[in-house]
């Protein structure tokens, strides 16, 4: 007579993950940041799009003089700096989430996230340097390409 296992017999314990919970609340803070920065970005980006694409001559007016005219004012420097940092952190965290969801192999995930973080650092550093070291009236440039206040 064969013995049949008791259906209520305890199952062999599953191997436990090395850590039962993540350390700290990083993912929670990320979740809150996406919502808080999203609201601020809505205002910053809608304002950016209105001033650059709708007001005045719209997209046809964009040239060096237009950008220099804006960045001569600390108001637009701070606006664009905030937009750069918030949008890059928001976007990088969003793409990180998507990589975690779809890249199943550890190596692929590591490679994609390394490229993502490298792009983040390069773009944020470059953009920040450009906003702060920008000269609206570079010497030796033809005056018709520069904003009107350069010759005043």
């Amino acid at each position: 007579m064969t013995t049949i296992a008791d259906p209520k017999a305890p199952r062999p314990p599953k191997p436990r993950p090395a850590r039962l919970t993540t350390r700290g609340n990083t993912e929670l803070y990320g979740w809150v940041f996406m919502r808080a920065s999203g609201v601020v970005l809505l205002v910053l980006i809608f304002g950016h799009l209105f001033v650059n694409l709708v007001a005045g001559e719209g997209v046809t007016a964009i040239d060096f003089g237009f950008v220099a005219g804006k960045w001569a004012s600390p108001f637009w420097q701070v606006w664009d700096l905030l937009m750069l940092w918030l949008a890059m952190i928001h976007g990088t965290n969003g793409v990180r989430t998507i990589i975690n969801d779809y890249a199943e192999r550890d190596g692929v995930r590591l490679a994609l996230k390394s490229a993502l973080y490298l792009a983040f650092v390069l773009v944020v550093v470059l953009g920040t340097l450009v906003i702060f070291t920008f000269d609206p009236c570079p010497s030796g440039s033809p005056a018709d390409l520069l904003p009107s206040f350069c010759t005043a």
Partner: peptide
């Protein structure tokens, strides 16, 4: 939401690079 988010992110990378041309010269940017 995911598709538009990824599209906007890749645009943003290019947008910062092209705007950075103002630091090289007015001619390069224009």
């Amino acid at each position: 939401h995911r598709v538009t988010g990824v599209a906007i992110f890749f645009f943003l990378l290019v947008h910062v690079l092209d705007t950075s041309l103002v630091r090289i010269s007015p001619e390069a940017y224009n």
